[in-house]
Design a protein around this nucleic acid. Structure first.
Length: 656
RNA sequence: GCUGCUGUGGCUCAGGGGUAGAGCACGUCCUUGGUAAGGACGAGGUCAUGGGUUCGAAUCCCAUCAGCAGCUCCA
């Protein structure tokens, strides 16, 4: 018994096993059901292979597919099976392997083919079929720890520069391991450089429900200077239901796609004649933009902002002073010259213009904080492949404002900015996450100004988040070049993340433009700037909102709030009067004057996602009522006109 | 920008080496209909653009432009 070991289970109970016992032995010792379901073990927070020996005194839990760790294990092992399938089908000599990590909904694996093969959509089915064969063959995953030299030699011999890159990149002393897949009768089937862990055998993946989804290019190690590999993305879940749900969500996302709904609902349009990434807002989309603007202007007025208007272009020199030219010249539209030789740029940012407004007068501490706001349209030359619907465009409008503040005002002002951003985004029911972006490293990141000023600004941002009870994460090196920032990321109805609002502290531009104000004691002091945009780009916000609401905007935002539909042409005049009355109350009403039965009129309003249809027949006119049909609640029946109007006004005022 | 895929009336899509199809939408007329599509007729496209192959190209090839997925980037 002296050679035995004692293992602690998560519930605190102890179990004695012979020396050298593995995770598999422990699972078997507990019960045959667990032995079958076990995929790995977790020891001190680390997930390990079932085949690795346990040590006395360790607290060990058995990992099954129903835990996050188990799902991870399953996905990772399935990625290996996919790599093996690709090699089996297309020849081991020509396939070079990149990496095959797990992702939120499954996994991917990157491949490079020495023979220049291009994967096609129909290859995915063949690969999937082969994967099922490999799983049915129940190959063992066998871990082998390998010395550095041998590991390198193995992959050099295979001509796989990617795996060699990985090995060379490992820190000294790192344990290098291979995972071999051994077929039950034919020996080695596949080997991969991998840290592990893995499930004990491919047979355990019979319960991995996966589907290969797309082929896409991806630069090796994410660096555009490196060759591009071919990546296969797959969804993978522990149950058929989970996979089904995920695929269903993807379908839902397609249905809600703002590009599709934007066309269907006639909100915006892209014209080749105008150019890529330059949206044209149609009347109905513009209504929503107007609502958003009014909403924010109103809120900003309450908070002491002043609106300004500035032109779309400015001298190139202005952007040299601001540093934009040096830092973002590549993504600014080409300089335009006038007939007299002056050079102008389309503005990529509003701050330099707002700074000029600050400098249009002598400023004293009595002027601060000076809050200048503008829905400023800016132009950025985004690379062609980066454009996408409204979420990434070349011309867009920022709900921008620049706050010029004295140092002692910075904190309170920043807090109030954070409050406004949260309020504005909460109005749409979008849950917000905050991310603090800090200064890049000396070598890698772009930044201007003194590191000490950056430290101060970062500290203020973090303090403001804590004061507001705002949960935040810190993203190292994600700052703007002129200062650290707080980004607001929203998660839409389909769990996708989008960065919208932003708030940035800036000590640098005031310095570059030599901004000053006269302090109480008569000395000249330098203000600090806060850049902030609750919505970020109105275009992106619209894209997000269209998808969030699936095109069914709440009444206060809906381009058309009520369609008035007469039962027959007899009621046309009364219907017109009702439309006029609604419009007089600043409600957005349209008349459906088609000589058609009420059915098609209702159908049309539903397709257009109009919140209300007001039906007017002989009966309603006689009784001074309207029959109301709600998009969300269905038929509401006849009600006095006043009741309907109150309902509408209430929804508008309450922003519902 | 890179890799791959796609590009047919306003929209959704079928077709495919021998001078273009459907549904919806649109127009006119008929119908005056009570809560998710009443009927008839009609108009509308040099099949993204430019080359090439061919007796003949919307169809095959190349290029360009645009869109989509992903990578990279995003003040």
């Amino acid at each position: 018994m002296s050679a035995g070991i004692e293992i602690v289970l998560p519930d605190g109970s102890r179990r004695s096993l012979p020396a050298g016992a593995t995770g598999a032995d422990l699972a078997a010792d507990i019960g045959p059901g667990l032995a079958k379901a076990a995929l790995g073990v977790e020891v001190g927070g680390e997930v390990r292979d079932l085949s690795r020996p346990l040590h006395s005194g360790e607290t060990v839990s058995i990992v099954k597919a129903d835990s996050p760790a188990g799902l991870e294990l399953m996905r990772h092992s399935t990625a290996h099976v996919m790599a093996q399938a690709v090699i089996d089908l297309f020849g081991g000599d020509s396939v070079r392997l990149g990496i095959g990590p797990t992702i939120k909904s499954g996994f991917y694996y990157d491949f490079d083919f020495a023979d220049g093969r291009r994967l096609k959509e129909d290859d995915l089915q063949r690969i999937e079929a082969r994967m099922h064969e490999i799983i049915a063959a129940d190959q063992e995953f066998v871990r082998e720890e390998v010395p550095y030299e041998r590991a390198l030699a193995t992959w050099e011999a295979r001509g796989d520069r990617y795996k060699c890159d990985l090995i060379r990149g490992f820190p000294a002393g790192e344990t290098i391991s291979f995972y071999h897949n051994r077929a039950r009768d034919e020996g080695e089937a596949f080997v991969d450089l991998c840290r592990g862990p893995h499930v004990p055998s491919t047979g355990k993946l019979a319960k991995a429900h996966f589907k290969l989804l797309t082929i896409a290019g991806a630069y090796w190690q994410g660096d555009e200077k490196n060759p591009m590999m071919q990546r296969i993305y797959a969804a993978c879940f522990a149950s058929a239901d989970d996979l089904k749900r995920h695929l269903h969500n993807l379908e839902e996302a397609v249905k809600r796609d703002h590009r599709k709904l934007g066309k269907q609902l006639k909100l915006f349009h892209f014209s080749d004649e105008v150019g890529p990434g330059l949206p044209l807002w149609l009347p109905r989309g513009t209504v929503i933009l107007d609502v958003l603007r009014e909403f924010l202007v109103d809120e900003q007025r309450k908070r002491g902002y002043q609106s300004v208007v500035t032109p779309h272009i400015g001298r190139k020199h202005l952007y040299e002073t601001s540093g934009h030219w040096q830092n973002y010249g590549d993504s600014m539209f080409p300089v335009m010259g006038d007939a007299e030789g002056a050079e102008f740029c389309l503005k990529p940012m509003n701050c330099p213009h707002h700074i000029q407004i600050y400098q249009s007068d002598l400023r004293s501490y009595r002027d601060l904080p000076l809050r200048l706001a503008e829905f400023g349209t800016v132009y950025r030359y985004e690379k062609s492949g980066e454009l996408g619907g409204l979420k990434r465009v070349r011309g867009f409008t920022v709900d921008d404002a620049h706050l010029f503040v004295a140092p002692e005002q910075l904190f309170d002002e920043f807090v109030s900015v954070v409050e406004l951003v949260r309020f504005a985004l909460a109005t749409f029911g979008l849950p917000v996450q905050a991310r603090v972006g800090t200064r890049g490293t000396e070598e890698g990141g772009k930044f201007v100004g003194e590191p000490e000023l950056w430290e101060r600004a970062q500290a203020e941002i973090v303090r403001a988040c804590e004061e507001m009870g705002l949960a935040y994460t810190v993203e190292e090196g994600e700052a703007a070049f002129y200062g650290p920032k707080l980004d607001f990321v929203v998660t839409d109805a389909l769990d996708r993340e989008w960065q919208l609002g932003t708030a940035q502290v800036d000590y640098n531009l005031p310095q570059r433009f030599d901004l000053l104000y006269t302090a109480k004691d008569g000395t000249r002091q330098r203000p600090i700037m806060i850049h902030r945009a609750p919505f970020g780009s109105l275009e992106r916000l619209m894209g997000v909102l269209i998808e969030h609401y699936a095109g069914a905007f709440p009444t206060w935002m809906a381009p058309v709030q009520v369609v008035v539909a007469p039962i027959s042409d007899e009621q046309l005049d009364e219907a017109r009067k009702l439309v006029d009355r609604l419009r007089g109350l600043r409600l957005r009403a349209e008349l459906d004057a088609a000589s058609e039965p009420i059915g098609p009129k209702i159908k049309r309003a539903r397709l257009e996602k109009v919140p209300y249809v007001a039906i007017l027949g002989a009966r309603e006119i006689r009784e001074s009522t309207v029959s109301v049909r709600s998009r969300d609640d269905g038929e509401l029946g006849a009600m006095p006109l006043e009741t309907f109007l109150e309902r509408l006004e209430k929804e508008v005022v309450e922003r519902r």
